[in-house]
Write a protein that binds this DNA or RNA. Structure first.
Length: 600
RNA sequence: GGGGUAGUAGCUCAGUUUGGUUAGAGCGCCGGCCUGUCACGCCGGAGGCCGCGAGUUCGAGUCUCGUCUAUCCCGCCA
């Protein structure tokens, strides 16, 4: 019996016809004389009615109907009586009266309910162990469909824009200055290793040298870093690169892609172009290079107020070139001791010496460990600048500019969360705050390594007007780098690249101070390639999992990956990673130092 | 590597504050009844290494220490 319809298909117009359905038994309601089965497939649910009085053949077998078993059923499509119509079901105006049915496969009782609402509350590790059952839930199948839709929209759009999809190797070589990598031992090259590509970066630039002009790929990338809700050890990037373009071309291209995605999947019209925010402004106002601007609580700079202050802690920082910044967590003066300690611990963990505050209590004087050091003029200026009212809580941070900003930026997010829990701050879920963050510093000084390291990667071109700074004061040079941010989340980033071999060599040698043989070994082929007529080019990589996660309204990208890994990088369903045999290791010319196998 | 939260029946949880009889509920499961349900209803039943291991105690689901797992965060993510 071949299926004639999917379970979400039958309508009033089908009444009178005969239908054959395949599917899983969603629920059974046995009334003795009549038995209702909700039959489910990937397209929906149809009610099938079994009447034991119709035939003995059917009545003999009805006890076999159990949830999650797979059946094929043939029957007549029948109108439902008025009071039997189920308005919550797309097929709710009809039902199929079974004439015959066959069990295709029985199911054991599932370990958790295959339902959208109840299933959501089940422990995630159990659901991941039985991911094939978890994915059966309509809401999860809908996510897979939605991800497919997003990919199709992206591919169609890129095709229209003249891009060629090219696959690049996943087996690459180790590039230790980036993220930690997954190493793959080479059997035929004893003692040597591949690394799984953390991105197709170098290959896509070579494609530009090759004259591809417009490349894209939905590229799987691998990074052996610790997990987060928005990170997986393997993830997918919308990776692309273009020749003969400037930053404006890139902005327009990506904005068009986002517009098409949001229209196609959410029927939301995005306003173009997206705003652009300099790194400096983002840090100054929000303390983050990917600020969530859907709520206020902006940072303020207090250097002008406290310059020459008698409060030495502030004055000393200002005189040594640092900044005093503050944030008013409006309405949070009822913060608990525990919450305050949490914020302070967080700030000190990020390198703060402490977290000074003023509590403008209701019905009482301000409470603060530092207020006594302030002059009356300073207090008055502070009250005006920070717009302090009863019930407010103001946090201070005095440190180097970047550190002061980023610590208060984190305090800002936590304070917003505390306010949200109290019902004093609400974020409109219909707001899509897209914007570009631009003019990042090209490099940052790494205290640990005692040298400059690339803020993005060493192939990012400096702003034309900042190029002379590479010689004069590298830390002031800004790069032609851009990050796409949405609602406080980094969706992706990229840059216009260096295409001149001399400049690239200079960045490696003089700015990043990499040894010559390291440059030659790791990047020699790139610099060499640039000597053969490399076109000016630039690119970007967007986190597809994050984008789909936002389009699906899920909190974690695990929800939009068919078979995700846990925070420790394990697949609970297939139990990977797992041990290998001694022979396998020998063939690969490696020896494990772990004597006892880890218990699982 | 560090900090927080959680772990009790197949699932979701209560019980832990103040140690004390036989560890409970809802859903699911099994059996019976029921011809219009769609969270069907009614009757009955089975089901527990209270994550694991030590310790304190006459006595531990409950207190202490350790450990494992998941998750959130910091570090990390060119």
């Amino acid at each position: 019996m071949k299926r004639t319809h999917h379970c979400g298909e039958l309508r009033r117009s089908d009444i009178g016809s005969t239908a054959i359905l395949n599917g899983w038994i969603d629920s059974v309601r046995d009334h003795g004389g009549v038995l209702f089965v909700d039959l489910r497939d990937r397209e929906g649910v149809t009610q099938v009615v079994f009447n034991p009085h119709r035939s003995d053949a059917i009545s003999q077998t009805l006890h076999q109907l159990k949830p999650e078993s797979v059946i094929v059923v043939k029957g007549s499509v029948t109108e439902r009586e008025n009071d039997a119509i189920n308005p919550r079901l797309a097929t709710g105006e009809v039902e199929v009266h079974a004439e015959s049915w066959t069990m295709l496969n029985t199911s054991q009782t599932p370990p958790f309910p295959i339902e959208d609402l109840k299933g959501d509350r089940v422990n995630e590790d159990l659901r991941l162990t039985y991911r094939y059952l978890d994915l059966r839930r309509p809401k999860n199948l809908a996510v897979l469909k939605r991800r497919h839709r997003a990919c199709k929209i992206i591919r169609d759009y890129m095709d229209e824009e003249g891009f060629i999809e090219v696959e690049t190797p996943m087996l690459f070589k180790s590039t230790p200055e980036g993220a930690r990598e997954y190493l793959v031992p080479s059997r035929v090259n004893p003692g040597e290793f591949y690394a799984l590509a953390q991105s197709p970066q170098q290959f896509k630039q070579m494609l530009m040298v090759a004259g591809v002009e417009r490349y894209f790929q939905l590229a799987r990338c691998f990074r052996d870093e610790d997990g987060r809700a928005d990170r997986q050890p393997e993830f997918t990037q919308v990776d692309l690169e273009m020749s003969f373009i400037d930053r404006e071309d890139m902005y327009a291209l990506i904005e068009g892609m986002m517009q098409r995605l949001w229209k196609g999947l959410l029927d939301v019209d995005l306003d173009l172009p997206f705003e652009r925010l300099s790194y400096e402004d983002a840090m100054n106002n929000y303390g983050s290079d990917r600020p969530d601007r859907r709520f206020g609580l902006k940072l303020a700079d207090l250097n002008d107020i406290f310059k020459g202050s008698h409060f030495n802690v502030f004055n000393r920082v200002i005189e040594s070139g640092g900044h005093v910044k503050a944030i008013n967590a409006k309405g949070l003066s009822d913060i608990t001791e525990g919450e305050l300690k949490y914020l302070t611990d967080m700030a000190t963990a990020m390198g703060a010496k402490g977290l000074a505050f003023i509590r403008a209590r209701k019905n009482g004087p301000w409470k603060s460990p530092i207020l006594k050091f302030f002059s009356d003029a300073e207090i008055a200026a502070l009250r005006e600048r920070m717009e302090i009212e009863e019930g407010d809580l103001v946090f201070f941070m005095a440190a180097g500019w970047e550190r002061a900003c980023s610590i208060l930026g984190k305090v800002r997010l936590e304070a917003a969360e505390l306010l949200r829990k109290r019902g004093k701050l609400a974020i409109d879920p219909s707001v899509w705050d897209f914007f570009w963050v631009i003019e990042f510093p090209l490099m940052v000084f790494d205290d640990e390594a005692d040298r400059f390291v690339s803020a993005h990667h060493p192939f990012t071109a400096p702003l034309v007007e900042d190029r002379h700074l590479l010689d004069e004061d590298p830390k002031l040079a800004r790069g032609q780098h851009y990050d796409l941010v949405l609602n406080g989340m980094e969706l992706g980033g990229g840059s216009i690249r260096i295409h001149q071999p001399d400049l690239q060599q200079k960045v490696f040698e003089e700015v990043l101070q990499l040894p010559k043989e390291v440059i030659e070994d790791r990047f020699g082929y790139m610099v060499n390639a640039f000597r053969y007529g490399a076109p000016p080019h630039g690119g970007i990589a967007l986190g597809l999992d994050r984008i789909v996660g936002l389009l699906c309204g899920t909190g974690s990208i695990r929800d939009v990956i068919a078979f995700p890994k846990t925070q420790r990088g394990q697949c609970l369903m297939s139990s990977s990673p797992g041990p290998v045999t001694e022979k396998q290791l020998r063939d690969l010319h490696i020896r494990s130092r772990v004597v006892e196998k880890p218990r699982r």
